[in-house]
Amino acid sequence: MVSTFSDDREDPLGWLAFAQSGVLTTAQATCLLGPGVVRGRVRSGRWRSVCRGVLLTGNGRLTRDQQLWVAVLATGPRAVLAGATAAAEAGVRGLRREPLHVLVPATRRAGRTVLRRLPVDMVAVVVHRTSVLPRAHLQIARPPRTTTARALVDAAGWARTVDEAQAVLAAGCQQRRVTPEEIRAVVDALPRAHRRHLVHRAVDDIAGGRGGTVGDRLPAAVPATRPAPAGSPTPAHRRGRANPLAGRVLAGVGGARGRRATGSCASPPGSSAPAPTRSRTPSTAPCWRRAGTPEHESWTVPVPWD
């Protein structure tokens, strides 16, 4: 269901439903309409009971905005979106959309029974507790959420791996949704934050111009920094098709039934290096292994059966 703008400016229920994407708590609806009217609309099918204490002013499937409101309202008072969920709502792309992360103060506990009985069209909700949630870390939004800097710091701490944590921080800074100084200020306010030292190192690298870590993760088989010598072959495509733009290709990939042959690449003009040869002796070396000097390099590549 999509909430529509109410023409009646004196209708508080319409304005509240519009502000919360059609998701209300039972207490809100009862205060505005009364318990009898609310029960009648739910029993007649006009409204839908999503979970205990949360109603939908419609009977359709939940949209993305409604799922966010259900996660916040079902968790309880003072709950806000956090982590990757809040960062995605702030505009950071490439983050996980599920599950939904909600942050609550450490002085209260969320209703675990309610969150375990969500409908099938509602994604999973993960509730986190914190003892440090100042007003400066809260973003005025609908639904309420943490600031982008706090969301990225929390997402890095809740990430499954270290690489994912670094990727979250780099995405927020590279997409210009947050600055490294803002992330540092949040980390300084959280002395017990998970992966605190990792966040500091990652932010220092990003601020120093080394935020892109893709070059550091290239496989060793890819000569990323050293250009190939003149006349050297180009490794064959993973499916067996050689690069048609290459000057010379020694052999293609034969797949599981191919054999391996060792040969020398073509030497530059005027060089006394031997011509390419082929050996029928099987080799266990990988296809990207190289040996020799830049003037005369040998490649080991798999070739198909004759």
Results as ranks from 00 to 15, higher is better:
284 T>Y: 07
267 S>C: 15
288 W>V: 09
283 S>R: 10
267 S>I: 04
283 S>N: 13
264 S>C: 13
297 E>T: 14
262 T>W: 10
280 R>L: 10
277 T>A: 09
283 S>T: 14
255 G>Y: 03
262 T>N: 03
290 R>S: 05
298 S>V: 15
296 H>Q: 15
292 G>M: 02
299 W>S: 05
276 P>G: 06
277 T>I: 04
283 S>M: 02
289 R>K: 08
292 G>P: 01
299 W>E: 11
295 E>C: 02
297 E>D: 11
277 T>S: 13
278 R>C: 08
292 G>F: 07
294 P>A: 00
275 A>D: 12
270 G>C: 03
282 P>M: 00
279 S>C: 11
296 H>S: 11
272 S>P: 09
270 G>P: 03
268 P>K: 02
273 A>P: 00
267 S>N: 04
265 C>Q: 09
275 A>R: 12
281 T>A: 15
256 A>Q: 06
263 G>A: 14
278 R>H: 10
257 R>M: 01
292 G>V: 01
271 S>W: 07
289 R>V: 15
280 R>H: 08
273 A>C: 11
262 T>A: 07
295 E>V: 05
255 G>M: 05
280 R>M: 03
269 P>R: 07
259 R>C: 10
269 P>C: 02
284 T>I: 05
292 G>I: 02
260 R>V: 15
280 R>S: 13
297 E>L: 15
287 C>M: 04
284 T>G: 14
295 E>L: 06
280 R>I: 00
298 S>C: 12
266 A>E: 12
267 S>G: 14
265 C>V: 14
